[in-house]
Design a protein around this nucleic acid. Structure first.
Lengths: 125, 125
DNA sequence: ATTTAAATCATCCTTTTGGGTGATCCGTTT
DNA sequence: AAACGGATCACCCAAAAGGATGATTTAAAT
């Protein structure tokens, strides 16, 4: 306040009220507090594992059915057609049909390519 | 200040200086500023792509040769043995030998499993 | 009621892949 | 010089995968 009064004395002629000085002080120290708060806060670093978000729109665009998607997932896990058939309780032929249709829709000709492309398209993690 | 003086009047008998009140105000509003600064700071979120680091020790432990590793990479890209042979300018039989040895070392029996396991072992991204 | 899409299974045939074995060549190590 | 690991290739056989086509059933949509 003394400093402010001194400044007032030097540069102005008006006599300012004590409330005015207090207002200025409030503003200045609130600002200081904000600055300190920002300055000494550790930046909160959040490591985000690349959260997989299924691209449903692509799934729909390619008209991939639920069953085909199941087969795709199991193919991606490295299972053979026979193993997939056993796991889904259907015949090997059925799985071959599903995978064939899947390859057509994904525009690939091998299961390894299907896995690659499906990952690129965010259909599987 | 008026509020403070009122409080002083109510609960204390001493006559406190204006500097004292200003000190209190400074402390209060600096604290307020700090609070605001912390409250409205967005947490800094850093997305960390899962930086792939090749696990050389595993590669050496499994005694996977350079050529075999090359084949592994191309298998992971979805190439057929014939395509790999063309790309590396060797015969199909050579690739079959390499992939067979690779499967032995990775303890798998299919290329899709090899890709899966190689990823788990951090041999490929 | 008819159409449609999904899921199921089959048959036939071809290509790809995997497993086993053996052989040659070439550097490096012993 | 001999041994060794690596890279290369061949041949054989069996299993797996892929492509094409057709058929049946069922549930949902029109």
């Amino acid at each position: 306040v003394s400093g402010l009064k001194f400044l007032e004395y030097r540069f102005f002629v008006r006599d300012l009220s004590i409330e005015f000085y207090i207002g200025i002080i409030v503003v200045i120290f609130t600002g200081l507090g904000i600055w300190v708060g920002l300055k000494f806060t550790r930046k909160k670093i959040v490591f985000v594992g690349p959260e997989f978000v299924l691209d449903v729109s692509t799934l729909e665009r390619l008209e991939i059915s639920k069953r085909e998607y199941e087969v795709l997932e199991l193919i991606a896990k490295g299972l053979s057609n026979q193993e997939i058939a056993d796991k889904l309780f259907v015949s090997l032929n059925t799985i071959k049909t599903h995978s064939s249709n899947l390859f057509l829709k994904l525009e690939v000709s091998r299961r390894t390519q299907a896995v690659q492309k499906a990952k690129d398209l965010r259909l599987i993690p």
